[in-house]
Each structure stands twice: as C-alpha cells, then as structure tokens.
Design a protein around this nucleic acid. Sequence first.
DNA 1: TCTGGGGTCCTAGGACCC
DNA 2: TCTGGGGTCCTAGGACCC
Length: 416
Amino acid sequence: MIALADCNNFYASCERAFNPKLRNKPIVVLSNNDGCVIARSSEAKKYIPMGAPAFKYKNEFKRYEINVYSANFTLYGDISGRVMRIMHSYVQDMEIYSIDEAFLNLKGFRQPVDHCKKMRAEVLKATGVPVSIGIAPTKTLAKLCNHYAKDHKETGGVFKWSDLEDKEGYLKQLPVEEIWNVGRRSTVKLNINGIYNAYQLMNANESWIRNEFSITGLRTISELKEIPCFKLEQNGDPRKGITSSRSFGRAVTDLTNLEEAVATYISRAWEKLMEQKSACSHVYVSIVTNRHKDTPQYYNSITIPLTISTWYLPELIDAALKGLRQIYKKGYSYKKATTMLLGIYQRGDVNLSLIEPDYDFKRINSLMNAIEKINKKDGSESIKYASTGIKQIWREKKEMKSPRYTTSWNELLTVN
DNA sequence: TCTGGGGTCCTAGGACCC
DNA sequence: TCTGGGGTCCTAGGACCC
C-alpha cells in the first residue's frame, strides 16, 4: 500500500502560516521576476488561472482583493523540510517527490487511514500546512485518491482506494488528462483515438499503447489495474544535472552583463554541486531573446567539456564564459540565460587526469570548502568571484516578497 | 557484382512532472 | 514596461567497436 501526501496550495499555505490575516483570504504567489502565477489559495482559484501572466491580471488582483506575493523559495524550502521530517517520523520508507509531495510506504499498517489522519493532524498543528493524503495499491491510484481527498471535504483529507464503492463509475467520469503521466500531448492523441476517460484508457489495447506511448504508457494502464509498476524511489541519489537559469529583470544586450549573469548562475549551480559533494565534467550555457516580443529572435547553446572533472568554481566560470563568448551575437536583446553542470560524478569516482598530473585537488578542495562554509554562515554571495559583477543590472525583480521568517535572524516574525 | 551481425555509448529531442 | 525554474525518463539515430 502506498500513500501520496500532498500539501494543499503549498506556497500559499506557507504565506498564510505566518500571517493570520490571510486566513480565508485569496492569495497568489508569483514566479521569479513576478512573472506569472505559480500558486493560488482555494479562494483565488475562482478568479485566476494557473500560470496566468501577472501583468494581465492586475485588475483582478485589485478587484477581488487578492494578496499577491513574490516567490520566497527560502521560506518554502524550510517549511517543506519541516513537513517532510514529521511525515518521516510516521513511516520508515518514504520518497520525497517534490517540494510539497511525498510517497509513503504503508506496507504492514493495519489502519492506514487512521495512521495518516494522525500524521496529517500533527503536520497541520506544527507547521500550519494542510495536507491531503491518497492511499492505494499503486502510485498512479494514490495520486487519484489524493485528488479525491482534496475534492471531498467529508473524507477529512485522507482517502483510500478500497473505500471507493463505484470504482468503474469513478473511472468512467475521470478525463484521461487527470491521470498522472498523461500530459497535454498524450491527451490529444488519446482523444483522437476515441479515448476520453480513465476507464477507456485502462481497457485500451496494450500493444497499441506500447507503440504510441512507450513503456511509460503501458505502466500507467497497469497501475490503473492495481498492478504496481512505479516503485518507491530512494531519495539522496545525487542529481544527474544541475541547472541554474533565470530571466533578467530587464533586457540585456551587451556581453559584459551577460557574463556577469552567467558567472552568477554558475556560482549558484556550484553551491548545489558542493552540497551533494560531486564533481562535473561539462558546463552548458544558453542565451535566448524574449519570445513574447516582436523583435529579432536568437537562441543558441553550447556544451563545454572540462579537461578534468572538477568542483573548482573558477574553472567552471571560466568554461562557461568561454562558451558564452562563442555563442554571443551582437545586436539582440537577451531575456534569459541558462547554465547547467553536467556529467556529474561522485568525487571518489573522478579519474585523476593524466593530462594534468599537477592538478592540486587538496588545495582547491580546502578553498572551495572555505567559501561554501562562509556563504552558508553569512549568506549566499558573501564571498563571490568578481566576474559575477557588482551592479548586476540584470537582476530579477521581486517586489512583493514576504520575510524569510524561519531562516534569517533579521526577518523573524514579530509578535506584539 | 557482391557488402553481416551484434553490441555499447552518446546525444538530441520529446514528453512528462511539480 | 511586465509571460518561471528545475528536474526525470524514454527513444531514435549516429558513431564506434569486434
């Protein structure tokens, strides 16, 4: 038996947890740069669609007195950690699937619903975040039960597949696009072939599904039939690629500013590389103009191999800038840069290069550890490389950010 | 005129997720 | 004026090997 626990309107719930005035009030949270809506409280869902560009909905924000926040990922990440720790104290085995979701292994529990209700109550009390829980034999069905729990108040936030009386009826009224791993593309293809609901999908021809939707499609229909195909994954595996990308606060045309941004993004990616104690062998850079604008468009990317797998930041920045200069073209207004660290290895597995026998891993390691430590203590970018720039005119805008209540001494909640 | 069979690794692109 | 960011997995095709 597997449970999927999913925080309700997570980012909005985080904002609300520290601000009682927001209770029962509509809230939306905006993406970086205050670009589009990435979370809505239930009160806001009526008025604002998911992903809505913020500037197009200024009037609605005002008219319905919606509380608008810039994303505060430091806060959300910290709250997520607290929620996950509590849930982990209720089960041995758990897979953190995203910032606000986890699959729990409920094997062996006699009263899984009661157990989850207890867990749910503790999470709510300790963090203020409401969680919905779906329990089923497979991940796909647990996802569906989770939706069911969210949509039906009388469940108390916890719902089990085997308690559903008319399963066939339920699946027949469930559009295929609501099934986990059935996205936009597949929905169109399924609809063209006369498959509209979960029941039809479950009974579709398996070899046709295999051909059209690959092994993932086949697994999905098995999971609907209560045959588990997606296992509980182990957390803690190092990431296979680390991305840092950001839109600019304003368009950037000159190379110097792009260089600052790329050096800054690489530094962010390097922080994550350090956290998982890895080395990387390739650095990727791309730059792109604003596709929403009626101006000349340009996109290019490049992957630079490093002579030796490393976690030495100056070398990563160096490679990225080298790549950037190769793809940069004058005369365009750039909107966004993306950087990635690829070819990620655990440091123990790194081959000591025969080409550079003098590479001093000991020295760079202590230097990198020192920078990491200081930045952890005194804040990111306390120590940084000069190539990341001082003025940073390309920085994103965040005009409506809430305080980092739980991770910054200067921003603690004040109680009067 | 004739031109195998079986395998691995890498990459790009597509689709999906939150 | 203003339209997010960070991941995973699968597949097909090319390069290369014996």
